[in-house]
Amino acid sequence: MENILEVHQLSKHFGKKQALNNVDFTVGKGRIVGLIGPNGAGKTTIMKAILGLFSYEKGQIKIDNHPVSEASHQALAKVGALIEYPAIYPYLTGLDHLKLNATGDATTERIDQLVKQMKMESYINRKAKNYSLGMKQKLGIALALINQPELVILDEPMNGLDPQATKDLRDVIMSQAAAGTSFLISSHILSELEKLVSEVVIIDHGEVIKQATIANLNHQENDFIMLKTSDDAAARTSLAQVGITTAEAPGLVFNQTPSATLALVIKTLVKADIDIYDVVHQGEDLEASLLSILHNEKKEA
């Protein structure tokens, strides 16, 4: 499969802190790839480097086989993006923004179609300073899509969107991807991301931990189980004493393996006089897989 985006051995420092370390991943043409990881993992930094907004010390970024850097932007003609928050001038209307950014042929038709697809008709003629967070977010996404780019980079696109708007966005992304557009999307709303992406790149501490298809990822990773106890802190300590580490997540989450079974966990907690209120099997979803991978990485470290 041909790649629209190739990131190879990308490294960047902020002062003494290494923000990215030999980051390597690809986005195939027409694929929707999720960029996931904990806060501060380096997702936005990677996206900004791809968009030529950051310089980097080492590595190479190619869009459709053309290099991109802070000083070389030609390949970015094929890219649309929403980074951090929508880039909006408060004194312009949504329609003004779209007209200002639309280039090429049949801009009016494209704008009309996108406004309809994103369901923005009721407020597109209002000044953007009066928009709600969700409206601004939708406009930001529309701006990323307006020039029918080959690659769309979206950083937390579901921020501030209500369930209906989230579904509308999902439909738009799916239809664009079906037409051949590639997407690189970062989001903390993993349940939503899972409905969209075919592949994920997992980042932690500026490094790519794994790039895999959703099917492979879920298949490879073990179950995660969340417990609600009378004293999570004490439970964590008791489990650590028998060699079972827990994930850094709300509640008490552990990765069930042959050596760390639910039975052993329950026995340990009962022995420690800790009450168990609930046991939730998190199943093989993206969230569980991510937690498992990050958990294993932590254990290895």
């Binding site: 907004l53 000083a71 390949a75 970015l76 890219v79 993006a81 980074i83 951090e84 880039a87 909006i88």
Partner: peptide
């Protein structure tokens, strides 16, 4: 300054044009 204030500088700089 308003480009930095509104965050629109990013949208300007990620285009095909040189800084």
């Amino acid at each position: 300054a308003s480009e930095f204030q509104h965050g629109t500088i990013k949208a300007l700089l990620y285009r095909k044009y040189y800084r």
